[in-house]
Design a protein around this nucleic acid. Structure first.
Lengths: 222, 222
DNA sequence: CCCAAGGTGTAACAATTGTGACACTCTTGT
DNA sequence: ACAAGAGTGTCACAATTGTTACACCTTGGG
């Protein structure tokens, strides 16, 4: 039915036929989205299981001053709000907004639950997804816990640094990175300047070169 | 076997006999702990399922400057590190340290997995626990995302305020609260003073009285 | 090819928080 | 009842970050 579904972590280990069969036994629909729509607001109840088929979504916290903190980007064929379908307080923790037009598969919670019972592999996959989410959030907390922008930058770079290379490709604008780190954009730029003039890093449009790895590690290790 | 286990969220809906039977079919042991021991360090692999039977534990992040940020307190009969047993990166996200002497039930991951398969109720309970954890972490992020101490305090108070009362009982020292909010203790005290002199709240040792609820909400709502 | 829109570098200034220090108060065990 | 330890109120000062503003790049349509 949807080719991409068999690559979804949820259906890991199942073949096309099995996936189709599961989907067809459940109440489902396709939801299209486009523009700058907000698909769900923080606090709204999560009542359906959602799997992104096309496009790109973003989860962001919006504080009361209107500032936003990007929590994560969601790309196909990931599940949306997977960790918030069950549990004591199943509401969206973030605003869910559209980054790129697309569509998603929506399944009623009831039928999704049946689907989990019907196939132990799917259940196991789902368990891994939810655990993974918790781990992701935990890492996010690590991030927010760093007090200084310098630490956040160092952590981000070291986290994205591939072994046997000293170059990090940036798929993110400074503006986007500032949101991710939860700091003001000019403040980020300032700290980057400082680190450049100290010869720790070389920050170019699309890539960052680590000049002094040890000093960078020292920022986190002192 | 252990009376308290039947009250554990994991065994919700099962009777004593069923719980005993599940436990006895799994490799398990009792681990005692005391003093100021650190039971597990952040980054250590989670290889066993753990259920707290007695005492009190604390999960805390320790940054590189030695400051700690308390993430949560764990009391019986909760599971320990429930959301970190499965998933792609099953390591402790925090240091697990002892707040009060006690003991916990330790079950090998393999046998715990069997236990989940053996009883759909336990599996469902576990799913709820893990989802709940993700939701907890998500709320924690909400906290850390507030920029000012004033906002954090307002959020904390409103979150802990019971309906039809304007008094909040504090089971937490200012020091503990400062750690929870991730701010320095004197900074917290300063902001509390300010809010008191503005007649928003009345902060006493063991309880906080909300004087002007609307103004408190306005801090978060502007 | 040029314009418009978004991204980036930078600066001065304001606001907030952290630090370290000290006196004082409360609690608890002996 | 008292001493010791932990928690609290407060201060001056340092450090960091946010704000606002503006000039300058880049890039991708028209």
């Amino acid at each position: 039915m949807f080719e991409i579904l068999k690559d979804s972590p949820l259906f890991n280990g199942l073949d096309n036929h099995e996936v189709d069969s599961l989907i067809n036994n459940a109440l489902h629909q396709i939801r299209q989205f486009s523009g700058k729509e907000v698909l769900a607001f923080s606090g709204e109840k999560v009542e359906k299981a959602m799997i992104l088929l096309e496009g790109k979504l973003q989860g962001e916290m919006v504080d009361f001053a209107g500032n936003s903190l990007k929590i994560e980007e969601i790309e196909p064929p990931q599940m949306v709000a997977a960790a918030f379908l069950y549990g004591p307080q199943s509401v969206f923790p973030v605003n869910l907004s559209v980054l790129a037009d697309g569509k998603m598969l929506v399944i009623s919670k009831k039928d999704f639950t049946k689907m989990l019972s019907a196939d132990p592999r799917v259940l196991n996959n789902y368990l891994n997804i939810v655990s993974g989410k918790a781990q992701f959030l935990s890492r996010k907390i690590t991030f927010l816990s760093f007090k200084t922008i310098r630490e956040k930058i160092a952590y981000y770079l070291l986290q994205n640094l591939k072994k046997s290379s000293n170059i990090i490709l940036m798929n993110q604008s400074q503006k986007g990175l500032a949101e991710l780190l939860g700091v003001a954009r000019p403040s980020l730029a300032r700290t980057i300047s400082e680190m450049e003039s100290e010869n720790l890093i070389l920050w170019e449009r699309n890539q960052v070169t680590i000049v002094e790895l040890k000093s960078l590690q020292a920022i986190l290790g002192k």
